[in-house]
């Protein structure tokens, strides 16, 4: 079984189309590396959110400094929002804390907004992206019925039952597609079964008759990812691995 982060990077990369303008926010290391991987064979314009200082320590590789990345640039908030509203952004990958069968996503609170059981950091511009970008794709590193819920506690970004929603959800176990606003299991990680996914999803979904197997990480891709991200920043998004990465910073 390959590393979850590497598996996601590979399968996210496959969604990126030649010529697309992609915006990617801070601390979404997995899709950032997927964009770098995609740029090896596709012509990508990358807008790196508005992170002013991507080299968060001198030990972080310069590939994270998107000013040096081929066709990459860092722009301010106003410039980014102008591009977004003028519909010049093709795609962003977003990570939800909760998502339902319509693609409504919650990054705000677990519980009610007035009396939150868990106050989450906040949604940044997720609804702005879902609404104005041509496509949005969600990614979930820890597929579970806590994330895939029947009804989200708070709608931070709206889904297909309210107009427009995300186009796909890619997880460590599978990939869902929204077709005509309906969620369909379209691809599966060969390490899991459909039953595993049913067990870990809090709503009923349709399974595609032409279900495909997701790609597994080959040696070449693994080596490339390791070279791009030697400190494993990508694992900051994997709950079980976060501590190891943070320890590296503590011991600098």
């Amino acid at each position: 079984m390959s590393k979850i982060s590497d598996f996601l990077i590979l399968n996210i990369e496959k969604e990126i189309r030649d010529g697309e303008t992609i915006v990617q926010g801070t601390s979404t290391f997995i899709p950032m590396i997927a964009v770098i991987l995609a740029s090896q064979k596709k012509n990508i314009n990358l807008i790196a959110g508005f992170y002013a200082n991507p080299k968060i320590t001198p030990k972080i590789p310069s590939t994270f400094c998107f000013e040096n990345f081929k066709n990459g640039k860092i722009i301010g908030l106003s410039g980014f929002l102008d591009m977004l509203i003028e519909e010049k952004i093709d795609l962003e990958f977003l990570r939800p804390a909760q998502v339902d069968k319509y693609g409504n996503m919650n990054n705000t609170v677990i519980g009610t907004h007035k009396n939150p059981k868990i106050r989450l950091p906040g949604g940044m511009g997720v609804d702005d992206i879902v609404h104005y970008a041509k496509r949005s794709i969600l990614y979930v590193p820890n597929h579970s019925s806590k994330v895939f819920v029947d009804e989200v506690d708070f709608v931070t970004a709206s889904g297909w039952n309210k107009g427009k929603g995300p186009d796909k959800i890619i997880t460590n176990m599978c990939s869902f597609e929204f077709i005509g606003g309906k969620i369909i299991l379209s691809e599966i990680n060969p390490d899991y079964s459909v039953e595993d996914i049913i067990k870990n999803t809090g709503f009923v979904f349709e399974v595609s008759k032409k279900i495909k197997k997701m790609s597994l990480v080959d040696r070449e891709t693994k080596d490339f990812i390791k070279e791009v991200d030697p400190l494993c920043l990508r694992d900051l998004e994997i709950k079980e691995e976060r501590g190891k990465v943070l320890n590296k910073f503590k011991n600098v």
Binding site: P116, K117, R119, G122, G125, T156, L236
Partner: peptide, 30 residues
């Protein structure tokens, strides 16, 4: 639109103050 430390973690202090009703968090988008 966000209070936290990106990949480094979330804020225990602000989180707790909001969860216990000491501070009201009015969410924004960008």
């Amino acid at each position: 639109a966000y209070v936290g430390y990106e990949g480094l973690g979330s804020s225990k202090i602000t989180r707790n103050a909001v969860e216990t009703g000491k501070v009201y968090f009015e969410d924004l988008t960008e």
